[in-house]
Protein backbone atom coordinates (compact mmCIF):
# COMPACT_ATOMS: atom_id res chain seq x y z
CA UNK A 1 0.00 0.00 0.00
CA UNK A 2 2.75 2.37 1.01
CA UNK A 3 4.78 2.03 -2.18
CA UNK A 4 1.84 2.24 -4.59
CA UNK A 5 0.49 5.04 -2.45
CA UNK A 6 3.80 6.86 -2.70
CA UNK A 7 3.70 6.63 -6.51
CA UNK A 8 0.26 8.16 -6.59
CA UNK A 9 1.15 10.71 -3.96
CA UNK A 10 3.93 11.89 -6.28
CA UNK A 11 1.67 11.82 -9.29
CA UNK A 12 -1.06 13.96 -7.75
CA UNK A 13 1.50 16.61 -6.87
CA UNK A 14 2.71 16.90 -10.48
CA UNK A 15 -0.85 16.74 -11.76
CA UNK A 16 -1.81 19.53 -9.41
CA UNK A 17 1.17 21.68 -10.39
CA UNK A 18 0.31 21.13 -14.05
CA UNK A 19 -3.26 22.23 -13.44
CA UNK A 20 -2.11 25.45 -11.86
CA UNK A 21 -0.91 26.52 -15.30
CA UNK A 22 -4.56 27.31 -15.99
CA UNK A 23 -3.92 30.56 -14.18
CA UNK A 24 -1.13 31.48 -16.62
CA UNK A 25 -3.61 31.66 -19.49
CA UNK A 26 -4.65 29.36 -22.34
CA UNK A 27 -1.26 29.05 -24.02
CA UNK A 28 0.57 27.79 -20.97
CA UNK A 29 -1.85 24.97 -20.19
CA UNK A 30 -2.40 24.08 -23.84
CA UNK A 31 1.36 23.88 -24.48
CA UNK A 32 1.75 21.69 -21.41
CA UNK A 33 -1.15 19.44 -22.49
CA UNK A 34 0.23 19.22 -25.99
CA UNK A 35 3.65 18.32 -24.61
CA UNK A 36 2.14 15.48 -22.62
CA UNK A 37 0.07 14.24 -25.58
CA UNK A 38 3.04 14.19 -27.92
CA UNK A 39 5.45 12.37 -25.66
CA UNK A 40 6.91 9.32 -27.34
CA UNK A 41 4.24 6.61 -27.11
CA UNK A 42 6.53 4.35 -25.10
CA UNK A 43 6.96 7.02 -22.47
CA UNK A 44 3.36 8.10 -22.44
CA UNK A 45 1.88 4.63 -22.34
CA UNK A 46 4.60 3.41 -20.05
CA UNK A 47 3.72 6.15 -17.63
CA UNK A 48 0.02 5.55 -17.95
CA UNK A 49 0.35 1.81 -17.44
CA UNK A 50 2.70 2.36 -14.53
CA UNK A 51 0.18 4.61 -12.81
CA UNK A 52 -2.67 2.31 -13.68
CA UNK A 53 -0.76 -0.63 -12.26
CA UNK A 54 0.03 1.34 -9.10
CA UNK A 55 -3.63 2.22 -8.70
CA UNK A 56 -4.65 -1.35 -9.47
CA UNK A 57 -2.26 -2.83 -6.93
CA UNK A 58 -3.28 -0.20 -4.39
CA UNK A 59 -6.93 -1.09 -4.78
CA UNK A 60 -6.32 -4.83 -4.89
CA UNK A 61 -4.19 -4.70 -1.74
CA UNK A 62 -6.78 -2.57 -0.02
CA UNK A 63 -9.48 -5.09 -0.86
CA UNK A 64 -7.43 -8.05 0.28
CA UNK A 65 -6.40 -6.30 3.52
CA UNK A 66 -9.96 -5.35 4.25
CA UNK A 67 -11.13 -8.90 3.66
CA UNK A 68 -8.45 -10.27 5.99
CA UNK A 69 -9.34 -7.67 8.57
CA UNK A 70 -13.03 -8.56 8.37
CA UNK A 71 -12.10 -12.15 8.98
CA UNK A 72 -9.95 -11.24 11.97
CA UNK A 73 -12.72 -9.12 13.41
CA UNK A 74 -16.00 -10.98 13.24
CA UNK A 75 -19.24 -9.14 13.89
CA UNK A 76 -19.08 -7.36 17.19
CA UNK A 77 -22.32 -7.31 19.13
CA UNK A 78 -20.92 -5.05 21.81
CA UNK A 79 -19.89 -1.45 22.02
CA UNK A 80 -16.57 -0.23 20.77
CA UNK A 81 -15.24 3.22 21.48
CA UNK A 82 -12.31 4.98 19.89
CA UNK A 83 -9.76 7.03 21.71
CA UNK A 84 -7.37 8.54 19.24
CA UNK A 85 -8.12 7.23 15.74
CA UNK A 86 -8.68 10.18 13.38
CA UNK A 87 -11.73 10.57 11.16
CA UNK A 88 -9.55 10.22 8.07
CA UNK A 89 -8.02 6.97 9.33
CA UNK A 90 -11.44 5.52 10.05
CA UNK A 91 -12.81 6.41 6.62
CA UNK A 92 -9.96 5.28 4.38
CA UNK A 93 -12.03 2.59 2.69
CA UNK A 94 -14.94 4.94 2.05
CA UNK A 95 -12.79 7.82 0.83
CA UNK A 96 -10.75 5.40 -1.26
CA UNK A 97 -13.81 3.84 -2.90
CA UNK A 98 -15.31 7.22 -3.80
CA UNK A 99 -11.94 8.35 -5.13
CA UNK A 100 -11.73 5.25 -7.30
CA UNK A 101 -15.11 6.12 -8.77
CA UNK A 102 -13.94 9.69 -9.19
CA UNK A 103 -10.78 8.68 -11.02
CA UNK A 104 -12.75 6.59 -13.49
CA UNK A 105 -15.13 9.46 -14.01
CA UNK A 106 -12.27 11.92 -14.36
CA UNK A 107 -10.55 9.85 -17.04
CA UNK A 108 -13.78 9.36 -18.96
CA UNK A 109 -14.42 13.05 -18.58
CA UNK A 110 -11.20 14.79 -19.53
CA UNK A 111 -8.91 12.11 -20.96
CA UNK A 112 -11.06 9.96 -23.20
CA UNK A 113 -13.89 12.52 -23.54
CA UNK A 114 -16.33 9.62 -23.35
CA UNK A 115 -18.78 11.45 -21.15
CA UNK A 116 -18.95 14.57 -23.29
CA UNK A 117 -17.72 13.61 -26.78
CA UNK A 118 -18.15 17.22 -27.72
CA UNK A 119 -14.83 17.96 -25.99
CA UNK A 120 -13.12 16.24 -28.92
CA UNK A 121 -14.05 19.21 -31.07
CA UNK A 122 -12.43 21.78 -28.78
CA UNK A 123 -9.36 22.67 -30.78
CA UNK A 124 -7.18 25.73 -30.83
CA UNK A 125 -4.24 27.09 -32.70
CA UNK A 126 -0.89 26.91 -30.95
CA UNK A 127 2.14 28.21 -32.86
CA UNK A 128 0.44 27.19 -36.06
CA UNK A 129 -0.53 23.73 -34.86
CA UNK A 130 -4.05 22.52 -34.17
CA UNK A 131 -4.10 21.18 -30.62
CA UNK A 132 -6.75 20.33 -28.00
CA UNK A 133 -8.03 23.42 -26.29
CA UNK A 134 -7.65 22.10 -22.77
CA UNK A 135 -8.07 25.56 -21.32
CA UNK A 136 -11.59 25.87 -22.71
CA UNK A 137 -12.34 22.27 -21.93
CA UNK A 138 -11.64 22.82 -18.24
CA UNK A 139 -13.66 26.00 -18.07
CA UNK A 140 -16.50 24.44 -20.00
CA UNK A 141 -16.39 21.32 -17.86
CA UNK A 142 -16.41 23.13 -14.53
CA UNK A 143 -19.02 25.62 -15.61
CA UNK A 144 -21.43 22.82 -14.85
CA UNK A 145 -21.95 23.37 -11.14
CA UNK A 146 -22.78 19.72 -10.45
CA UNK A 147 -19.56 18.48 -11.97
CA UNK A 148 -17.51 21.17 -10.28
CA UNK A 149 -19.05 20.34 -6.93
CA UNK A 150 -18.35 16.66 -7.40
CA UNK A 151 -14.72 17.49 -8.17
CA UNK A 152 -14.46 19.68 -5.09
CA UNK A 153 -15.95 17.01 -2.82
CA UNK A 154 -13.71 14.36 -4.31
CA UNK A 155 -10.68 16.55 -3.66
CA UNK A 156 -11.81 17.00 -0.07
CA UNK A 157 -11.85 13.24 0.26
CA UNK A 158 -8.45 13.06 -1.40
CA UNK A 159 -7.17 15.52 1.19
CA UNK A 160 -8.42 13.27 4.00
CA UNK A 161 -7.14 10.16 2.29
CA UNK A 162 -3.72 11.74 1.93
CA UNK A 163 -3.47 13.15 5.41
CA UNK A 164 -3.79 9.64 6.85
CA UNK A 165 -2.20 7.89 3.87
CA UNK A 166 0.98 9.95 3.78
CA UNK A 167 1.61 9.71 7.50
CA UNK A 168 0.77 6.01 7.32
CA UNK A 169 3.25 5.63 4.50
CA UNK A 170 6.10 6.85 6.70
CA UNK A 171 5.00 4.35 9.33
CA UNK A 172 4.65 1.43 6.94
CA UNK A 173 7.99 2.09 5.31
CA UNK A 174 9.48 2.17 8.79
CA UNK A 175 10.73 5.72 8.46
CA UNK A 176 8.94 7.15 11.43
CA UNK A 177 10.34 7.41 14.91
CA UNK A 178 9.47 9.24 18.06
CA UNK A 179 11.53 12.27 17.11
CA UNK A 180 10.13 12.72 13.61
CA UNK A 181 6.60 11.56 14.27
CA UNK A 182 5.00 14.96 14.76
CA UNK A 183 6.88 16.45 11.84
CA UNK A 184 5.73 13.67 9.53
CA UNK A 185 2.13 13.96 10.68
CA UNK A 186 2.17 17.72 10.11
CA UNK A 187 3.79 17.20 6.74
CA UNK A 188 1.10 14.69 5.79
CA UNK A 189 -1.73 16.99 6.80
CA UNK A 190 -0.08 19.90 5.03
CA UNK A 191 0.47 17.82 1.94
CA UNK A 192 -3.20 16.89 1.89
CA UNK A 193 -4.24 20.51 2.15
CA UNK A 194 -1.80 21.73 -0.50
CA UNK A 195 -3.08 19.12 -2.91
CA UNK A 196 -6.66 20.02 -2.04
CA UNK A 197 -6.20 23.76 -2.52
CA UNK A 198 -4.21 23.26 -5.70
CA UNK A 199 -6.78 21.02 -7.33
CA UNK A 200 -9.84 22.84 -6.07
CA UNK A 201 -8.50 26.18 -7.29
CA UNK A 202 -9.59 25.37 -10.86
CA UNK A 203 -13.24 24.38 -10.38
CA UNK A 204 -13.59 26.96 -7.63
CA UNK A 205 -12.22 29.72 -9.84
CA UNK A 206 -14.53 28.70 -12.69
CA UNK A 207 -17.57 28.74 -10.43
CA UNK A 208 -16.57 32.06 -8.89
CA UNK A 209 -16.08 33.58 -12.33
CA UNK A 210 -19.40 32.23 -13.48
CA UNK A 211 -21.57 33.15 -10.52
CA UNK A 212 -19.91 36.18 -8.97
CA UNK A 213 -18.40 39.36 -10.20
CA UNK A 214 -14.90 37.94 -9.87
CA UNK A 215 -13.44 37.41 -13.29
CA UNK A 216 -10.62 34.92 -12.97
CA UNK A 217 -11.50 32.95 -16.04
CA UNK A 218 -13.41 34.24 -19.07
CA UNK A 219 -16.22 31.75 -18.52
CA UNK A 220 -18.91 33.57 -20.49
CA UNK A 221 -16.55 34.06 -23.46
CA UNK A 222 -15.66 30.40 -23.55
CA UNK A 223 -19.27 29.27 -23.25
CA UNK A 224 -20.34 31.69 -25.98
CA UNK A 225 -17.52 30.67 -28.27
CA UNK A 226 -18.21 26.97 -27.87
CA UNK A 227 -21.96 27.14 -28.15
Amino acid sequence: MAITGLIMVGFVLFHMLGNLQMFQGPDAINTYAHFLKTLPPAVMWGGRLFLLAAAGVHVATAISLTRENCKACPTDPGVKERVQATLSSKTMALSGSILLFFIVFHILHFTTHTIFPVYKTFMTDLDGQQVYDVYSMVIYGFSNAWIATFYIIAMGLLCMHLSHGVSSMFQSLGLRNNYWRKTFDIFAALYGWVIFIGFVSNPAAVLLSEYTSLNIFPVQDVLLRLS
Binding site: F170, Q171, N178
Partner: peptide
Protein backbone atom coordinates in the same frame (compact mmCIF):
# COMPACT_ATOMS: atom_id res chain seq x y z
CA UNK B 1 -4.69 -11.41 13.10
CA UNK B 2 -5.70 -8.51 10.89
CA UNK B 3 -3.45 -5.92 9.31
CA UNK B 4 -2.16 -2.69 10.69
CA UNK B 5 -3.76 0.30 9.04
CA UNK B 6 -2.25 2.79 11.44
CA UNK B 7 -5.33 3.78 13.41
CA UNK B 8 -3.26 4.08 16.52
CA UNK B 9 -5.98 2.79 18.85
CA UNK B 10 -3.61 0.11 20.13
CA UNK B 11 -1.23 2.72 21.45
CA UNK B 12 -4.08 4.59 23.10
CA UNK B 13 -5.29 1.62 25.14
CA UNK B 14 -1.92 0.00 25.86
CA UNK B 15 -1.54 -0.15 29.63
CA UNK B 16 2.21 0.16 29.24
CA UNK B 17 2.00 2.92 26.62
CA UNK B 18 4.00 1.03 24.02
CA UNK B 19 4.64 3.44 21.19
CA UNK B 20 3.51 3.08 17.57
CA UNK B 21 7.11 3.81 16.68
CA UNK B 22 7.90 0.21 17.41
CA UNK B 23 5.53 -0.74 14.60
CA UNK B 24 7.53 1.51 12.29
CA UNK B 25 10.66 -0.24 13.49
CA UNK B 26 9.09 -3.64 12.89
CA UNK B 27 8.12 -2.56 9.36
CA UNK B 28 11.66 -1.37 8.78
Amino acid sequence: FGNCTNYGECEAVCPKEISLDFIAKLNR
